[in-house]
Design a protein around this nucleic acid. Sequence first.
DNA 1: GCTTATAATGAATGAAGGTTCAGATTATGA
DNA 2: TCATAATCTGAACCTTCATTCATTATAAGC
Lengths: 212, 212
Amino acid sequence: MGQQSGKRLSRKERERREHRRLILEAAEELFARKGFHATSVQEIADEAEFSVGSLYNLFESKERLYHELIEMRADQYLRKLAQRLDEADGPADKVRAAVRCKLDFFEEHRQFFNIFGNFVSGAESASPPMLSKTCIEIHGQIHRQLESVFEAGIQQGIFADIDPVLAVLALEGTTNAIIGEWIHTGSRKLESMNPGAVERILFHGLLDGKAK
Amino acid sequence: MGQQSGKRLSRKERERREHRRLILEAAEELFARKGFHATSVQEIADEAEFSVGSLYNLFESKERLYHELIEMRADQYLRKLAQRLDEADGPADKVRAAVRCKLDFFEEHRQFFNIFGNFVSGAESASPPMLSKTCIEIHGQIHRQLESVFEAGIQQGIFADIDPVLAVLALEGTTNAIIGEWIHTGSRKLESMNPGAVERILFHGLLDGKAK
DNA sequence: GCTTATAATGAATGAAGGTTCAGATTATGA
DNA sequence: TCATAATCTGAACCTTCATTCATTATAAGC
């Protein structure tokens, strides 16, 4: 039969993947706009120009489709973050990189924020069909990566002696709120809204620096 | 018929309110644990020890019940916040009061955080049956109150010259993330987790104060 | 072209749950 | 005590999907 050796995939397999991608794309748009329950499988199939039957050949269930979608983006984000953190030098710069990375990511995948929202914040809501194990695992990895940045920074005397877990929550919470506001008000560019203001708040806080 | 003059409510009316309260209480527990869609009207009725019919005598629909629940708590929170802000002296103290107020409120209404979550963060998710107009209005009032605190603080040179909207988002985002984490990990007391650390981060940021 | 394997289709199925309403129950007041 | 009004009740109704699968269309191999 077709060669599935090493890298090269059979045409069949490539088409299969492409079809899955198209369906995931349609699903992302609809789930983001209307939520999990208000989106029917029929609608997803229509949007992607497939029949429901074909959709079910490609995905086990509506719930599994939803999970795969989130897992895909979560994984994509984790990779991007890991790369950006790796490229940055020193704790302060890594924090800056993390902020930029997140803003960039959700500027590109604006829709996804509505789906990801709960996850990234509370991590264990039950409303839509609870997050998959994979997803919770990725969430944990993201937090651990950031925590270790803060730990290093504290060790080096760059950051104040604050619980790293709390520091991560401040970072995540603040960026979430800003991205949410940005999406909600529908500004064109995220950057335009807050050049380095986010970082300024995170690094220096709200109080005036008095002198200077 | 019964007297409904001025203050005194008829027994009928008092019972009606009490029954509504009981149903709202049952609904809060269930919506928080299982989400809007996964909770059936039957379950709510059972939990509250009423029939579905009676529930429908008291509430227009499942969706309306959900909205009334959120509006009730949102209003309760707004009142509490307004009072605490009023009692505090000066912008810095008002910010501290706002943080404490929020932590206290969600310590008391822990369940509600799962329901309120989206609201308080993104304010316009579509997943559950979109927030009611009333609810969005309350959300706006909360933000406006906090913004004016920051405006005053900036004017007085106490706070750095940061966009008040951004400052509010940092405040809300950080507290949301912390409350979410707290609920998720299931610690007993919120206070025990972070004495004044939240305020420290908000006021002074993550960087070490160098000297001192 | 013909046969076989593979994929696409969408009408049919069944389960779930929000809402209604005719009848049962309880309270009111003379 | 009885008549009337108000309230309660939950089975039946009806709609909305997720999922299946017999049928049709397409591609592969000869």
